[in-house]
Design a protein around this nucleic acid. Sequence first.
DNA 1: GCGAATTTAGCAACAGCGTTGCGTAATAGG
DNA 2: CCTATTACGCAACGCTGTTGCTAAATTCGC
Lengths: 378, 378
Amino acid sequence: MTRTTADVTFLRGYNQALVMAVGRTVRTFERSTVVHATGLTPQAVSKVIARLTADGLIRSAGVRRPGIGKPAVVYELVPDSRYAIGAHVARRTLRLVLVDLAGTVHHSTVSPLPADFTPEQLLDALSVGIGAITAGTELRSRLTGVGIGMIGPLDHAHGLVRDAHGLRHWHDVPLRELAEAHLGLPVHLDKDVTAGITAEAWRHGATFGDAALIMVESGIGGGFWLGGTAHRGAHTNAGEFGHTVVDLDGPRCVCGRLGCLEVVHLRAIEAGDVPRAARVLAVGVVNLLQTLDLAHVVLAGADLLRHADVYLPAVERAVRTDVPRADWLAPMVTLSRLGADVIAAGAAVQVLDQLYGIPDLTPGTPPAIVRQPVAGAH
Amino acid sequence: MTRTTADVTFLRGYNQALVMAVGRTVRTFERSTVVHATGLTPQAVSKVIARLTADGLIRSAGVRRPGIGKPAVVYELVPDSRYAIGAHVARRTLRLVLVDLAGTVHHSTVSPLPADFTPEQLLDALSVGIGAITAGTELRSRLTGVGIGMIGPLDHAHGLVRDAHGLRHWHDVPLRELAEAHLGLPVHLDKDVTAGITAEAWRHGATFGDAALIMVESGIGGGFWLGGTAHRGAHTNAGEFGHTVVDLDGPRCVCGRLGCLEVVHLRAIEAGDVPRAARVLAVGVVNLLQTLDLAHVVLAGADLLRHADVYLPAVERAVRTDVPRADWLAPMVTLSRLGADVIAAGAAVQVLDQLYGIPDLTPGTPPAIVRQPVAGAH
DNA sequence: GCGAATTTAGCAACAGCGTTGCGTAATAGG
DNA sequence: CCTATTACGCAACGCTGTTGCTAAATTCGC
């Protein structure tokens, strides 16, 4: 409805973000690198770099470069200029990570959550955990916010947990508001899988194509990165990939339908047949490819990574043999390099992405986190 | 890789397109309508309207409006200021339509294509057909281009038909280039289903949310509209929705896999069991909803529309009963109002959309059609 | 009737963006 | 020591949407 309007401040943010994306992707860069990668004029790049340097987001890292002509100034991202905290709320555990501007994970802690925990119990666990991470450090002033990755269904746009599968006290809980009030920091709430794929995309910069994160961990979910942003869907509830039917006459799933990918996969696991489980998952992955045509498939989740040696080849084979014109259409299949931290790291990255990532002008995306002054910035 | 850079000309195009989107969606509008819908300031709207009026794209349609204060000037789109031709290339037929700036279909003709036709035969059929439509009219000068919607796999970015299913002479044919040379007009090549969903989205303006067009016609395909643009995928080959497995032990499909939606559906049709075919399709639609969370599902295709009274209720029921929290998540399910013209109309609309639609800044989208001077424009 | 309130719309000045033109600094090669 | 080459910034510019203010056209209240 109310579409974001485009004014000159949008231009500044957009082109600035392009430069930041370069800085994230490569370790060091010069002006000419940016000119080539973005298509901006050298003069425009100079202005952007001056602004970013003034904000402390990038800095000069030496000069010199072999070759003719005046040596170019080399720049690099200042990773510790901004931080964000990411939380992965699972059924029984809370994982917290500290992530810097470059997307590097610094701390990673796991703490148990009470059985069938309440919103209040989660908030307490969050503030205790965050307090422990920031205790005795100066980074509070450079902390941009907290991202929370959680199972759905949830309403990202309004920061609302609608129903968390298997948790009794979570119906229409305005978690984002509650957490912002409780923590005194901007909070970003999103589905676990969507957060996860954001972590992967952030690491790859602006060149990351359409991709999916397949997560197998007490259920099967899929996070999507389409057209340069996370795909959340009309009600911000995309990703229930495990509840797609792959066997019309299959067993009944907890969701009520017959033969969902998740239940068929689970039966194979229960029978101790991991290879079959992997093949079933691979069928689902190829289904996604046929529908969406993806460039990357990232595999994640504790239950999958435990048998990564079985799942990865199974998916790779299916992708090569079952996709028509695989020479042209087959995606790159990898394991998530962030391992068990993907979701939490992604949740943190979403906070950074909202501030320093490439903005888009799509409808229904009100800025949840307002850019706030940070110590050292002007 | 090379991402489009954002400069002030982008601002102009973007905000101009926002106003055009309002003009397409409602029959008549005032400045205040645009201000409210876009968030632009009244002054900015005045400037945009002045430019669009000078280009002949919109015009004043009377003044007056009951109410207090100075009467507002009423504006409307000038539908016949620009046209585009759309072609739907099927296995045996060529459908051509003439579409105006408002998205209205003016002519619709169907001509047979030779069995196993060659690229040359298609080009001839195209120029004959287009000649017939434009003959004796003045609209050649207002013709912005030709859109071609076709079965895949094809490469939209490079205007290349990779392999058209069931057509022997279509392997790596640079159809866009060939057609541009042959017709002397800008040509836009895309998959049939992607063109189709564009037609639907165009009619609804900027408020159209994530959506899919489900097409049943010598195969099953899906076109997607996600985040404000057509989703084409990493290799511009998304949409092979019919080749997703829904029955692990099902019959073998032409694509080689077992139990694809398409083959299971076909078996039901061959058995004369249309209700079962519809239920199978509905399972596939719910799979899409679980994965992508869509706001609209549009049903189309000759084979579906022939039994629309069976398919529509079947899908509607599945969407209400099989989607969890359907009260919140269920999409609107409709039949395509353009009927048999969807694909051709959508192909035409894609040309108009590239010129007057809301531009986006996503990577890998070089402007295929350059804005060209049109008679009457300044 | 007539002034006040209300709504619409445009002119003029402005701030901020990337762009263009050109001058300057720093290096290597002859 | 001069020239070619490369890097980079200052200054002026064109363009965008924004802000401040004025004028025009209507309804409403007295």
